[in-house]
Structures are given as C-alpha cells and as structure tokens.
Nucleic acid binder design. Structure first.
Lengths: 135, 135
DNA sequence: CTACTTGCAAACACTTTGCGACGTG
DNA sequence: CACGTCGCAAAGTGTTTGCAAGTAG
C-alpha cells in the first residue's frame, strides 16, 4: 500500500478522535489540511485502512458507516434517535473468536457488541411527543 | 397501530424465514401475495414493527439493513465479501442490559453481538486473487 | 518510468417523503 | 366517516466508479 499524504491524514485523524466519525466527518475534518481532497479518496482510503486492520468499520445505527481506529474490546451504545455513539465496557470475551472460527469456518476479523437504544437527552425529547411511540 | 393486510403479510414472512432478509427481499417476497404493494409501504411497516418490538433491525455488513423477527440472544456472523449472515450462539449475558442502563442512562432496546469476517466460500475465492488483499 | 492514487463528476443503491386515493375501526 | 395507511413517483442521502492527470517508489 502506497503511503500518500491523503491516507496519512485520514489515519491521523481517526487515531486522534474518539467520536466514531462517519465518512462525511472524516472528509470535513481532513479537508482543513488538504482542501482539495475528494470524498472518493476518503471512501477509498477508509476501505483500505479497514482491510489492513488499521481501522474498523462500525455498522451501527442505520444508513451511515462509522469508523474507529481503536480496535480494542469495547461495546457501542447507539441512540436510534440522534445517532450518538458511546463506548461502554462489556464483559464479552473476545477470545471467543477462535471458537467461532472452529465452529463455522469463517475467518473472523473482529467482533462488536452493540446496544441499540435511546440516549438520555432523546428520552426527554420523546416524552413530549410520546404519542408517536405507541401509535 | 392499524392492522392492514400489508402489515400482516410482512410480519408473517419475517416470522417464517431464517434468512435475515433485507427490505428488498421482504418486498419481493410479499409481492407474491400482494402484487401491488410498494416499497414505501414495506419500509414504513418494517419501521413500525421494529418500534413495537415485533422485529429487530440488524445493522450488519454495510449499506443494507436486515430484519429479523426472532429477537432472541444470538450473534450474527457477517461475510464482508458476499453479505451472508449466519447465526451463532454466543456466551453473552443479555441481562447485562440492566447494568448498561444504570451506568449510562440509555434506554436499551436490544443488543447484538456481531462478527465481521469472511465466509468459507469467499475465503477460497479470495485466495485466487489474494494480491488485492495485500496491496 | 510504471503503476497506484488522486480529484472530479456522474452514476448507483437504498431509503424516505409528499400526495391524493383508499379502507379500517 | 375520520384518520391512519396505501401506491406511486420523485427526491434524498450515502457510497461507488470511470477517467484523465498526478505522484510515490
């Protein structure tokens, strides 16, 4: 894999942030130092970084993928209302990977524990319009 | 929630299948008994069923959401190459929800353990073009 | 030098939404 | 018979891709 300025900046940003950015957020952020970078380049490089294991793609909370350079064993709490993603420690043994590999033949690159729910702030908002939740 | 023919058929299909269908697959399938149903209706009803807890939306393997009427505690293995989703039993204690609720204030609707990897069939295919994986 | 990578713009794929008609409770 | 739901089509949103020009090794 060739080392370009674009790729460096993207990884640098991913490693520095804790917000589980979307591709769009990565694009906006990297653009401050590389104004002419394009979305295509961001998407292409994110994919390459994930294939190399330098980042992971999180499929949480719907349409948008999020990226994280910390591949350690923590779970993600996702608010289905505002899209907020918070980290949470979970008592999940990630060495369980090996057992899954033996049982299924899959090559396992990573695992993730995800909680879908509603964050405290959005719970308050929903109480005001709770009619919708029971319709 | 009003009970319409469309909604009934969608839930019926979800409960009968084990393939974690995408919205498109639900649409194609329900269309055999309700030929004039539209995608909009499928999407709207899937959302309502999820809000009522009669189905869950799985965010696995990328762009497309998948749906499952079995909300029990099992994990999902997803092939990043062909999109196959397989079930796998996991030693994850789902009563851990309560602890998360207390610690974070989130209202937790469900949790899921996901494994991202490559299925046996795609591993064979990739060996033939493995140059790409190391570029 | 050569082949991978970039920026751009157009194409794609999936999902959501506005509207008038329909049908359930 | 009122109001939620439907079918349709158009619009949105996020992502991928073809191409010519640029650049790392």
């Amino acid at each position: 894999m060739r080392c370009t300025r674009q790729k460096e900046k993207i990884l640098e940003y991913l490693q520095a942030t804790t917000v589980h950015p979307t591709a769009e957020q990565v694009y906006e952020s990297v653009r401050s130092s590389l104004p002419r970078i394009s979305r295509g380049t961001v998407y292409r490089n994110l994919e390459k970084l994930c294939r190399k294991g330098e980042a992971i793609e999180l499929y949480i909370g719907g349409r948008v993928s999020r990226y994280d350079a910390r591949t350690g064993g923590h779970g993600h709490l996702c608010c289905r209302s505002c899209g907020l993603v918070a980290d949470v420690d979970v008592p999940f043994d990630h060495t369980f990977h090996q057992e899954v590999v033996e049982r299924t033949g899959f090559k396992v690159n990573g695992s993730a524990v995800q909680f879908n729910g509603v964050c405290p702030a959005c719970q308050k908002k929903e109480q005001k319009v709770k009619k919708e939740a029971t319709q």
